[in-house]
């Protein structure tokens, strides 16, 4: 681990099921499946290792069921890992801490203060019963902001940054379009100035023209804030536009990692070659 690593994921595992002696032999990319035919155990993530430098955008690509979202959710501390460590080194902080060794209270606190997440489906990231402004304010309130004026100030700043119409700040989320809701999610994720932004298929549900504008927004925010991002997508085009390094997952395993353009232009693993050659 180098000194500038923000995150170092070491030997991370997640499986659903009891496991059996035959699992190791019968699952994985070489077998083309993540579920053991003998005992039914699903291996969602096996021995994941990667580092994330401060200010970097890392893409995780793979088809549905490859384990990319599981990996992201484990970093978000919303799915408990079975085994492994997630070392987090606060920029300017002293020693790295293992996020998986924190108690539930500290984990929630960490997730709120240091992480921001944008989900594919806005209902997962937003509370549809609160106004858009309230949703964005939630992160600040959780971080114990207790001054309505200052919260209003920060939410207006975020609205400007994410190009949301300021006059609609107090409207309910259901009156917003899909692209707008992604902007609201982004504004909420950024509210507490997190050190790591997690993006889970953020543009997958959007039509193409809106998709491009949301991606442009994310990219601009990355340049302006130099925020570290972990980006999950099955869309190589999205990965190419945003991520500088990319991890390829298949059947719960990381099969290849490298610079994004190298993964796209000189893929090494047979599966990555198939994936790249299949892209539109």
């Amino acid at each position: 681990m180098t000194t500038t690593s923000l995150l170092h994921v070491a030997d991370l595992h997640k499986r659903y099921g009891p496991g059996c002696a035959a699992c190791a032999e019968l699952t994985g990319p070489s077998q083309g499946r993540s579920q053991c035919p003998r005992c039914g155990t699903v291996y969602a993530c096996v021995a994941a290792n990667f580092s994330l430098q401060t200010g970097e955008v890392l893409g995780i690509v793979g088809e549905s069921g490859s384990g990319k979202s599981t990996l992201l959710q484990m970093v978000n501390l919303s799915i408990a890992a079975d085994q492994g460590q997630i070392w987090y080194h606060e920029p300017g902080g002293s020693a790295p801490v293992d996020l998986l060794r924190m108690d539930a209270y500290a984990a929630r606190r960490f997730r709120n203060d240091r992480l921001g997440i944008v989900h594919q489906r806005p209902e997962l990231g937003l509370n549809m019963h609160f106004s858009v402004g309230g949703n964005v304010a939630e992160k600040l309130l959780l971080a114990e902001w207790r001054h309505v004026g200052r919260i209003r100030g920060r939410t207006s700043e975020l609205k400007l940054q994410t190009e949301l119409p300021p006059e609609r700040i107090d409207d309910e989320p259901y009156t917003f379009s899909g692209g707008m809701l992604q902007r609201v999610q982004i504004a909420k994720a950024l509210a507490s100035r997190p050190s790591l932004l997690l993006l889970d298929e953020v543009t997958s549900g959007l039509d193409l023209s809106v998709q491009a504008r949301v991606l442009d927004l994310i990219r601009r925010i990355q340049w302006e804030e130099q925020i570290t991002m972990l980006l999950v997508s099955h869309d190589l085009g999205v990965i190419r536009q945003l991520a500088r390094r990319t991890i390829v997952m298949k059947n719960g395993h990381i099969i290849e990692a490298g610079l994004t353009d190298q993964i796209m232009e000189d893929p090494q693993h047979p599966y990555t070659q198939l994936l790249v050659s299949s892209a539109l």
Binding site: N112, F130, S131, G133, G134, A137, E138, L142, V148, I151
Partner: peptide, 15 residues
């Protein structure tokens, strides 16, 4: 002690 949502409720009642 996850009371963030109640705080949003209070915040919205002020706003």
């Amino acid at each position: 002690a996850d009371y963030g949502r109640m705080w949003v409720y209070m915040y919205e009642s002020v706003v």
